[in-house]
Design a protein around this nucleic acid. Structure first.
Lengths: 112, 112
DNA sequence: TTATTATATAACTATTTTATTATATAACTA
DNA sequence: TAGTTATATAATAAAATAGTTATATAATAA
């Protein structure tokens, strides 16, 4: 399993996110992926290596072509951590909710 | 609203994730946050500035102390993008499911 | 076999990031 | 007011990142 550092760092780059968005449509070879970018092929190759290293994509070899597609491992790695953060934010929100309720006792209560 | 680059880059650092985990428990001042780390106070101050810049935390000033707490904006910024990625992975999985079903027509069918 | 297509790697450069030490500022405390 | 506590900023220095060009390798096509 990839580590949190690697996955978040992968996602922090706009070129890599654009590559993932491209692969969200479907599988593509390295040159297919490189085409829309104003960047050299080696640069894209490096980005793909980073994405592969963080489990966000996988490649297979099909003759001379190496089609890439999205992989679940990268996202799976960060989901639990994001869940923790979401839970903490919700908890804090509930606490604020309590404070507001205490300040204005009738707000939010059933008006019947 | 913060941008995707800033939020993912913030989350890519283990010290900053540890700070967020600390704040998940509850509000804390800069020195409180700095204590557990084998790192100088200015270094923590910089990390807090990064977290604040990406909308993951907010601070208020209470005399000489600046208590920090989690903020929802950072996470809110990346959620839609993560949803997209999740959806694409699910779609690809369904597609693979179809392929597997076609290859082994009886697998996964009700055995009755 | 030779040329071409598809991809990867190496060497290098510029930029960004993360940490340090030293110092500034602002608010409390005695 | 003087000392202390709480935090921020500036000036580096070291390391990581992202791009470039040049080149290597492997598969396909002629």
């Amino acid at each position: 399993m990839p580590d949190l550092d690697a996955v978040f760092a992968s996602l922090a780059d706009p070129t890599r996110r654009a590559i993932l968005a491209r692969l969200a449509i479907g599988e593509a070879t390295v040159l297919d992926i490189a085409k829309p970018f104003s960047m050299t092929q080696p640069a894209i190759s490096r980005h793909l290596k980073v994405l592969e290293g963080s489990g966000l994509i996988v490649r297979r070899v099909e003759g001379a072509k190496h089609p890439c597609r999205l992989a679940p491992d990268g996202l799976a790695t960060i989901e639990p951590w994001l869940d923790m953060l979401r839970a903490a934010l919700t908890k804090n929100y509930d606490r604020l909710d309590g404070v507001l309720a205490a300040m204005t006792p009738n707000l939010g209560k059933d008006p019947t």
